[in-house]
Every structure is written in C-alpha cells, then in structure tokens.
Simulated scan of single mutants.
Amino acid sequence: MLAPFLLTFVLFFIYPMLRAIQLSFTSSSLTETGAYVGFANYAKLVGDADFWASLRHTGAFALYTTIPTAAIGLLMALAVNRLLRAKNFALALFFLPYVLPVSVVTLVWQWILNGNFGIVNALTGLNNLWFSHVDTAMVTVAVVTVWWTVGFKMLLFLAGLQNIPKETYEAAALDGAQGFQIFRYITWPLLWPITMLVLILQLIASLKIFAQVYILTGGGPFNSTRVVLQYMYETAFQNLNGGYASTIAVAFFLIVLTMSLLQAALLSRKS
C-alpha cells in the first residue's frame, strides 16, 4: 500500500533533488548537460553579490511575515473561539483569503494599492506607489502575504484552543485566575506546541517566497525585492545557466534546512 506513494516520492522529489545536486557540479545549460567543473560554481556563489543581496531580501521578508502572521493568527483564533452565534461566519470570513490563488490575491491588492485610483490612497490622502518605492515595496508584499496566509494559521490555533479541556479553565477559575492570567498560565503554555508548528511552517513558507514578489514587483524597484528563488529562476530560464541555478538551489536548500532546524531547537528549549 505504500508503494504508490514511495514511487511518486522517489520519482518527483528524490530524483530531481539528486539530479540538481549533480548538475550543480557542472557547467550545464538549461537544455544540455555540461562538463564537470567541481566546486567552481560554489566558489562563484560565495563571491556572488547578487545572491547575497537576494538572500538578505528573503531574510527581510521572513522577518516581516513570520512572527506577525503567527501573532495575528493567534488573536483571530482567540476572537473566533469566544464567539457563539457568528463563529462559523467569522471563521469562513477570515479563512476565505487563504483559498484564493496567488494570481487573484495579487490582482486584488494591485487594485487596492494602485497609485492612481487605489482605495488606500483615496482614503488616506496619500499618493504613494506602494510596489514601486524602495522603502515600501517589500513591506507591502509582506502585508499582502500576511493577509493571504493568516487564515490557515488561525485555523491551526483554533484547533489547538478547542482541544484544551474546559475542566482546566474551570479549575483555574476556582483558584481565582482571571482574564490575562488564564491566557498566560493556561492557554499560552498549552498552545505552545501549535505555536512551534505555526512558526516553523511560516518560516519555511516565507523563505520560499517567489510568486507574490514576481507578480507584484518583478523583483524591483532596483532589485530591492528580488529574492533567492527569483534569482534562481532568472539564472536558469533567462540566463540559461542550469548548472549555476542548481548550485543556488542546493545552497538555498541547505540554508532553509539549517534555519528550520535551529528554529525548532530554540523553540523546543522554551517549551
């Protein structure tokens, strides 16, 4: 019964990964396998200013989205969990953006933040080109991403809240716990495993950012929002340098894996 899954996993995940590692040691183009060049591509990557710049942009995006998404998702889950009659409506309303494809999400926000007729500029009296200004482009993409993905994190937190036994709250109330004390000493510690999961999932998703940046800003202005996956895409499909693109992919995989493991280790120490 495991054979279909294992075959699919090996064929579409393990083999491409091993193939990418192999290509990273070659001078391959996009269509032809090139000569073996050893660690030349990795030596080039170490001194590649464009790669390190894209890595910094990716890290900034992760910083702008990881903790805010978790915090807002938790607040939304706490609010929904306290509702009685309108719980299902609020749950559907908050979760709706998550089911939208990225193309729809970006199109909606391009209209909302349009510099000429966007509703945000009209309501605030500003005349800001949100996606075309160096100081606001990445932050704006982060805001769009948080709005789009926070519904799923809310759902995870809500599931955790509903699994906390009511008897625990009743016992705390009998001991005199009230308000924030209940959240600090009961809800938050029991939600910590869910919080760890949310933070790790969001960090990985944020580091893998591509579609929103590619559609909303194209990496601009002046490459200020070009992230690692976009740089890898441009290297492979525009510059037709498959070997070096594979090197970027392997290096970035190791960076994401290391950061995820470090985050998991740090979070587990606090639990």
Score class of each variant (00 low, 15 high):
Leu83His: 08
Asn88Phe: 03
Met76Ser: 13
Ala71Phe: 05
Ala77Asp: 02
Pro101Thr: 07
Trp109His: 09
Gln110Tyr: 08
Asn81His: 08
Ser103Leu: 04
Val99Tyr: 00
Asn88Trp: 06
Phe117Pro: 04
Trp111Thr: 12
Met76Glu: 13
Lys87Ile: 00
Gly59Val: 13
Leu78Phe: 01
Thr69Lys: 13
Thr65Trp: 01
Asn121Val: 12
Asn81Phe: 02
Phe61Ala: 04
Ile119Trp: 06
Trp111Phe: 14
Asn116Phe: 02
Trp109Pro: 14
Thr66Cys: 06
Gln110Asn: 13
Val102His: 07
Leu100Lys: 06
Gly73Met: 04
Ala70Phe: 02
Phe95Ile: 14
Asn114Ile: 10
Pro97Asn: 09
Pro68Thr: 12
Ile72His: 10
Ala70Leu: 06
Ile119Gln: 02
Ala79Gln: 02
Thr58Val: 08
Ala77Cys: 05
Leu75Asp: 01
Leu96Lys: 02
Gly73Pro: 00
Thr69Trp: 12
Leu113Asn: 05
Ala77Thr: 01
Arg85Tyr: 12
Ala70Lys: 08
Ala62Ile: 00
Ala90Leu: 06
Trp109Glu: 10
Phe89Met: 12
Ala62Ser: 02
Pro97Asp: 10
Leu123Glu: 04
Val99Asp: 01
Phe61Lys: 05
Thr66Met: 08
Gly115Met: 05
Leu126Tyr: 15
Ile119Phe: 05
Asn114Lys: 07
Thr58Pro: 00
Val102Gln: 10
Gly59Ser: 10
Leu78Gln: 03
Asn88Gln: 08
Ala60Tyr: 11
Tyr64Met: 15
Tyr64Asn: 13
Gly118Trp: 02
Thr69Tyr: 11
Val102Leu: 11
Pro101Gly: 09
Arg85Ile: 12
Val102Arg: 09
Ile67Cys: 05
Thr69Leu: 15
Trp111Leu: 15
Asn88Cys: 00
Leu84Ala: 11
Leu83Val: 07
Leu84Gly: 04
Met76Asn: 11
Ala70Gln: 05
Val80Trp: 06
Val108Asp: 06
Ala62Gly: 01
Leu78Thr: 01
Thr66Glu: 09
Leu75Ala: 13
Val108Pro: 01
Val108Lys: 06
